[in-house]
Design a protein around this nucleic acid. Structure first.
Length: 308
RNA sequence: GCCGAGGUAGCUCAGCCGGUAGAGCACGGCCCUGAAAAGGCCGGUGUCCCCAGUUCGACUCUGGGCCUCGGCA
C-alpha cells in the first residue's frame, strides 16, 4: 500500500500574504495550489476576494477558484470532497499539493474532519422561522443535553443546525460529531502571522486598494447578475458595504471604514481559531518578502520529507 | 467684546433634585463540526476641564478661571 499523499497546508488570517507565499512555494517545490479561501470559489468576486491574477499565479495551477456561480452555494462538505479528489490527482502528477487559505471551517473539515450526517434542509429551517430562539434551545435540550449545554441560546444558527441533524437522523449532533475524522493524508501545516500594528496597516491598505481597483463597480455589475442579499456570496466582506454605498445609504469614506472594520473583525476571528489548532508551525511574515517566507517554509518542508 | 450651548472611557454621548459613573461604537479575549469573509459569548478606574466655596460627603449645587462650538458685534 502506497504511503498517504503529503499535503503542505498554509493557513493564516487575511492579509498576511498567503497567496504570494503559496505561489512561491509551488515554484520551489513543484506544487499546485488548492485554494482554501472561503469566498474565492465564486466567479466574479475577483477584487472582493483579492484573487491572484494570471500574472501573480506565475504559471502555477490553482484549484477551487472560480468554480461556483455567483448566485450558487458551496459548503465545507463539498470542499472536503473536492480536496479528497484533488490531492491524489496532484500527487499522481508527482506534484506537491499546497492547501492555502484562511477559511476556518473549510480547513477544519479537511484537517480535523467533519461528520457525514444529514446536510442542511431548507424546508426544516423555514419551519422554525417564527419560533423564539429560547424555545428552540429548550427543544434542543430535550433531545441533546450536551449540545444544548455547549451552544449559547442566542447562537440560533447552531441551535437550528443541531435540531436539524437530530430531526433528520434521529441521532443527536453530539454523537455525529464524535465520528468526524480528518482526510487520510499526511498534513504538514504552516501558519503565517504578522505583527499586530503592521497587520492592521496592511488591512487598511488592502481595503483602500480594493476600492481603487474598482470594488464598487465589481459589486454593481454582480448585483445585476444575481448577487442578491439572500445569496451566500453576498456575505463577503466588501459586498454589503459597497451595496450600501451604491444605494446611497453611506458615503465612500464610511464604506471604506466599514470594510476595514469588517476585515479586521474577520482577522481576529481567524487568529482566534487558528491559535487553537494543534500542530501548526508558525512563521512570522512581519516585514518579510513572500520569497523569504516561502524559503523558510520550503526548507522546513523538505527537511520533514527526508526524515519521513 | 457680548449672548447662548457645552467640556464625563480612544470616539459620540447619557447620567446623578449631592452618596466617587454608564451606553453605543472602537479595541481586546474566546467559542465554533454541511451558511464560517457566517453566527455567537465575555471584558468599562475614567484627573467626570481646573481652582475655591457650601456640605458628613460634590462629577452633581454656588463662585471664579481656562478651553471648544454656535450667534451677535
Amino acid at each position: 500500500m502506497a504511503a498517504a499523499p503529503a499535503v503542505l497546508v498554509l493557513l493564516g488570517p487575511t492579509a498576511t500574504g498567503k497567496t504570494a507565499v503559496a505561489v512561491d512555494l509551488a515554484l520551489r517545490l513543484g506544487g499546485e495550489v488548492i485554494s482554501a479561501d472561503s469566498r474565492a470559489f465564486f466567479c466574479g468576486l475577483d477584487i472582493v476576494t483579492d484573487k491572484p491574477s494570471d500574472a501573480e499565479r506565475r504559471g502555477v495551477p490553482h484549484h477551487l477558484i472560480d468554480c461556483v456561480p455567483i448566485d450558487g452555494s458551496y459548503d465545507a462538505m463539498a470542499f472536503r470532497a473536492d480536496v479528497e479528489r484533488l490531492v491524489p490527482e496532484i500527487a499522481a502528477r508527482r506534484r506537491v499539493p499546497i492547501l492555502a487559505g484562511g477559511g476556518t471551517l473549510y480547513l477544519a473539515a479537511v484537517l480535523r474532519g467533519i461528520f457525514e450526517g444529514p446536510g442542511k434542509c431548507e424546508a426544516f429551517r423555514r419551519s422554525l422561522d417564527g419560533v423564539e430562539s429560547s424555545e428552540l434551545h429548550q427543544r434542543l435540550a430535550s433531545v441533546d443535553q450536551a449540545a444544548a449545554a455547549k451552544i449559547h441560546p442566542r447562537d440560533r444558527l447552531r441551535v437550528v443546525r443541531a435540531l436539524e441533524v437530530e430531526a433528520a437522523s434521529g441521532r443527536p449532533i453530539t454523537e455525529w460529531k464524535a465520528e468526524a475524522a480528518p482526510l487520510p493524508f499526511r498534513f504538514e501545516t504552516f501558519g503565517l502571522l504578522r505583527d499586530r500594528d503592521e497587520h492592521r496597516a496592511a488591512v487598511e491598505a488592502r481595503a483602500r486598494a480594493m476600492v481603487e481597483r474598482g470594488l464598487v463597480q465589481e459589486v454593481a455589475r454582480l448585483r445585476g447578475c444575481g448577487l442578491t442579499p439572500d445569496r451566500q456570496a453576498y456575505r463577503s466582506v466588501g459586498v454589503p458595504e459597497a451595496s450600501a454605498y451604491l444605494d446611497g445609504a453611506i458615503s465612500r469614506d464610511e464604506m471604506l471604514n466599514e470594510i476595514v472594520r469588517a476585515t479586521w473583525a474577520l482577522v481576529r476571528r481567524q487568529i482566534s481559531w487558528f491559535r487553537a489548532q494543534p500542530a501548526v508551525s508558525w512563521v512570522s511574515a512581519a516585514g518579510r518578502s513572500p520569497a523569504d517566507v516561502a524559503g523558510e517554509i520550503a526548507a522546513a518542508w523538505l527537511a520533514g520529507r527526508e526524515s519521513a
